[in-house]
Design a protein around this nucleic acid. Sequence first.
RNA 1: GUGAUCGUAGCUCAGUUGGUUAGAGCGCCGCGUUGUGGUCGCGGAGGUCGGGGGUUCGAGUCCCCUCGGUCACCCCA
Length: 439
Amino acid sequence: MASGTTFRAPVGTRDVLPPETARWEALIARFAGAVERAGYGLVQSPMFEDIGVFQRVGEGTDVVRKEMYDFTDKGDRHLALRPEGTASIVRAFVEHRPLTPWKVFYAAPSFRYERPQAGRFRQHHQLGVEALGSPDPDLDVEVIAVGWDYLASLGLRDVRLLVNSMGTRQDRLDYTEHLRRWLQEHLDALDPADRDKVAEHPLRVLDSKRAATRALLADAPSIADSLSPEASDRFDRVVGGLDALEIPCERTATLVRGLDYYTHTTFEIVSDALDAAQSTVLGGGRYDGLVAEMGGPDTPGIGFGSGIERVLLACDAEGVFATEERGVDAFVVDTTDGRAARDLTTALRRAGIAADRAFDGRSMRAQMKVADRSGARLAVIVGPDELAAGTLTVRDLRAGDSENAQRTVPSDEILAHLADVLASPRSPDNDRTRMSEPE
RNA sequence: GUGAUCGUAGCUCAGUUGGUUAGAGCGCCGCGUUGUGGUCGCGGAGGUCGGGGGUUCGAGUCCCCUCGGUCACCCCA
């Protein structure tokens, strides 16, 4: 807090601590499960790359032009922290030349040097998939379906899938020119803040939020009218596939997305539960040509990225995906000299029973408080009496003050006894669930 | 990079027109006699008022700078 005397997490980063991390673990597991079921394998690639890897991906985009987190190492190598997932995967593909189709996924941090705000950080965490080696439109459908089903499995309902086609590389270029010329003719009707985009990056004008621009855009030429017949048919096939899988989508001709390596299909899933400026919870597209540009064989590819922070924000907004707070099975309370706690917790853990204990020889009252707070289901009590009698007292911390909440068992039967008690289901109203803390 | 707004105990916040030893709730620690948590009662610890400079007899309260949080623009997960 005091900037001069203490350290804090760098700007735009934050610590994720228990119990919130339990929700992260559950989310990642849900994602991994969904994509592994579809045959995607985990890739762990470096968090930083030669800066050229990312520059190759999009010279004109802000992501690499002004938001790159780059540095020079002691060997004078110019490196950059990964700003997005696809470039690293493509580099790895070119380097290792695996058999295609190469279907992979990742769960990794991304870095962008930009001012933080709601749902946007300098370090954020992305879950994503990439599938390289096939131009089949059904692969587009598969990738989108996997992403859609993943979000649905979290309980998200207030989301919409937007899809578009940028056509072939040539279609995209032609349309960009066409749009540029049209915008230049209507420059005065454009919101002043959007005018400087026209020369550099006319496509950017399409996702402007300004009223004047939006009004003008209603009459602007649409990419849909510029697609070559092949690209148009291909897009129909993708939309038809989504329809067959009962995944509702909205054709959105203004969806161009920020990375300019996209060809053909681009898509985005937005959450209407988020009123923040950042409502995109998952986005991606096809990037035929990117692999070749990276120096590899001409290989088509498609993928998406989804930000964990934003997905969780959307879950909070909809009140879904609460995760159960996992306490240990047994909490050992030792009011003798602590040796019993030391030995018993270890024995329980070795037997597969999650166990914790208090330290520092605190009073029984204090230890019971800690046991309660820990979320443990059972307290295993060792006092002078138990020690002398060779027994242990087992108390069910969720059973209230009922008669049978507590039993004393011989020490050498404790493992069997605990296994038996823990096997019985606990009542649902004692389950603790947790959403992330509202802030 | 631009703009707005905020910055008081671990957390959420009060702090009169600048005036003596800075408060509350929650949390934390201890106690309520003989070994039992979750309720209740009592007590306690914990703050260089983000940091630096200035104005003033005197500043948490005014001014400047700086760092940080939040939100928006740009752009994006």
